[in-house]
Design a protein around this nucleic acid. Structure first.
Lengths: 237, 237
DNA sequence: CGATAGGTTGAGTCGCATCAACCGGGGTGG
DNA sequence: CCACCCCGGTTGATGCGACTCAACCTATCG
């Protein structure tokens, strides 16, 4: 299966062998987490960069009155904190959704790699940029798409992102989020998520069972969602 | 009044004099835009970094069916594209909201400054990080806050951000967005924005006239909005 | 002085939330 | 081995927040 982190970083171009080996070593001993565990609590200092090696995680915020919003989803290979150069930056809570292996890479080590050559720094900028683009597309979803469109869009996005690390063929993938996780991601209620999912199932567009998602007609789904994968790709360098 | 870009960059710590002078020179001749003009069209290549020197701008996306969502607001001093190291990265449309002066800084020049010392790179990372944090808080707003809370939250945020560049005392500031801009920012309809604004006015919390906003009771407003300014501040280096 | 952009108001509707049950399966403990 | 529980999912009834449509008002500007 290889190292998903390296696969992601090399999405834009190969890394020098030494870097690859260094990263391999740095992520060799990930820490195991159960489902629904906090990796970093909100407000914690940040001296280590978290890389999801397997499983799913998310950043979330809980409002004083208990409402929860998941603001980012991290899939295998994702670097949760690309803002490595910033010592002590505070961040939101980071928690697992499924059981997960998370490599805690000392920020210092990444900083050293950055200092060694522009290539690695560029790869980190690339990760950061990708994260914002996803974030912005979520803003579009939650702000302007209907519940049906939102769910369809998220499924398209997740399938595409998983495909980028070899965990999907674009038509089938893991989907371990509970309906209530989905609700907190998309700004909906669980009940409504449930009903919309049934609608999607009834129309034959998707199948979702046992934490696995099948897109029976990806094109039609993308159409409903107004999903344009451009924002997930990086051009050029 | 000084250079708002430099003021922002120095929010985390002073820059060496040479850098400051270089940036001063790079932003000395901003380009003038009218209100509602596109600075960068969606999908354009990016070879230049845009810095808002005066006026307001935003990044937005228009869905195929015409719905618009503003995904980021840029106030004076904001670097719209911190992802400078990435040549040719595509981005969403960038447009002005008011008349604005936008400095088009060659990406190459910023890259040169980064190469010169870690300090400047760190400042850029800081800008990028700040942008994501704002972005995530928007996700929370649109996903989980009511219309009243959302509007209150945006006003708190804007006042705080403007205060950071000396354009507000925290209780009064510019607010040049039309109700329809607000709607597209917050994922609401214009009509509803209008009604909620009246509610806020009636309760004596704010005054909004002639593109100026006065927060009569910032604490109460922050309370309604569940506004916690922590995400706008950066802790120590 | 007409045109236009922004704002205001009212009526009617709908998407989604809320509340409240209930179901089914897998794990646990007696 | 069964009873129980709990979690995730499902279903129905009801209500509200926000949207849509449509008109009208007001200030600004050529």
């Amino acid at each position: 299966m290889g190292n998903p982190f390296i696969r992601r970083l090399e999405g834009d171009g190969p890394l020098p062998g030494e870097h690859r080996r260094a990263l391999e070593a740095l992520t060799a001993r990930p820490q195991a987490f159960g489902p629904r565990e906090d990796v970093v609590r909100g407000g914690d200092e940040l001296r280590t960069a978290n890389v999801v090696m397997s499983g799913w995680a998310c950043r979330y915020k809980i409002l004083p009155d208990g409402r929860r919003q998941i603001v980012a989803l991290f899939l295998p290979g994702d670097l949760c904190d690309p803002y490595v150069p910033l010592l002590g930056a505070v961040d939101r809570a980071l928690g697992t959704l499924t059981a997960a292996a998370v490599a805690k890479v000392p920020a210092q080590a990444l900083r050293a790699l950055m200092a060694e050559g522009a290539g690695f720094a560029e790869a980190l900028w690339g990760q950061a940029h990708a994260a914002v683009e996803i974030q912005r597309e979520w803003a579009v979803s939650v702000g302007r798409r209907s519940a049906l469109e939102r769910i369809a869009h998220l499924f398209c996005e997740v399938a595409a992102r998983l495909a980028a690390v070899g965990l999907s063929d674009g038509a089938e993938c893991e989907m371990p989020l509970t309906q209530s996780d989905l609700a907190d991601t998309l700004g909906l209620s669980t009940v409504h998520v449930n009903r919309v999912l049934q609608e999607l199932r009834a129309s034959g567009l998707i199948e979702l069972r046992n934490r696995r998602l099948a897109l029976h007609d990806p094109a039609a789904l993308a159409d409903i969602a107004m999903f344009d994968p451009a924002y997930l790709r990086r051009r050029g360098s």
